[in-house]
């Protein structure tokens, strides 16, 4: 019973969880690790969470917590950007692509705490109070981090040069 219900839930929600984790981590590989960790926790807690009818809330918190844990794990990826970049021609970018790149770059530059607030509030659509409860911080902190994040994104996006393409190591 647990396996069937859990599998059905994962089937339906995995894409959403991966995308949220991707925004949090700014790295698809780490995002996959975070989702795996969150779903493992969910499986263990499934009967209790299912009874409380709070599966979505639980797994959302599990994703955020797994992102926190990810930064503390002994196994950690080391990015080698700068040591050697693949010698692959970069295709000409359209304006839309440039905008997406600029937003990714700006998101990556946010401190992790601000990024979590942005993802919970603006991607997941939570209220200030819900975000505060998920992160275990005060509503005032959520507001101040939201404000700081918006200001940083606004500045970064307005300063983004358009005549220079950058390439990130995936």
């Amino acid at each position: 019973m647990r396996d069937d219900e859990f599998a059905a839930y994962v089937e339906q929600r995995r894409p959403q969880l991966f995308r949220a984790a991707w925004l949090l981590c700014a790295d698809p590989h780490r995002a996959e690790d975070v989702v795996q960790a969150a779903l493992t926790r969910l499986y263990v807690a499934w009967p209790r969470v299912r009874r409380a009818d709070s599966v979505d809330a639980y797994v959302r918190r599990a994703v955020v917590n797994a992102h926190l844990d990810e930064g503390r794990r002994p196994w950690r990826r080391e990015t080698a950007a700068g040591e050697r970049l693949p010698d692959v021609p970069v295709p000409a970018a359209t304006s839309a692509l440039e905008e997406r790149d600029a937003l990714w770059t700006a998101l990556r530059a946010l401190p992790p705490g601000q990024r979590r607030v942005v993802v919970l509030r603006h991607w997941w659509g939570l209220s200030v109070e819900e975000t505060a409860a998920d992160l275990g911080i005060s509503p005032g902190t959520v507001k101040s981090q939201t404000s700081a994040a918006l200001a940083a994104l606004r500045t970064a996006l307005s300063d983004e040069p358009t005549d220079e393409l950058t390439r990130e190591v995936p």
């Binding site: 859990f6 991966f18 795996q36 779903l39 499986y43 990714w104 991607w123």
Partner: peptide, 23 residues
Amino acid sequence: LHDLTDGAPVPATATDEDVRRGR
């Protein structure tokens, strides 16, 4: 943010693997 992610490809991961890890 939704423009960034909503059309992005999601890795094909077998649900069985999630169940196995949970077990």
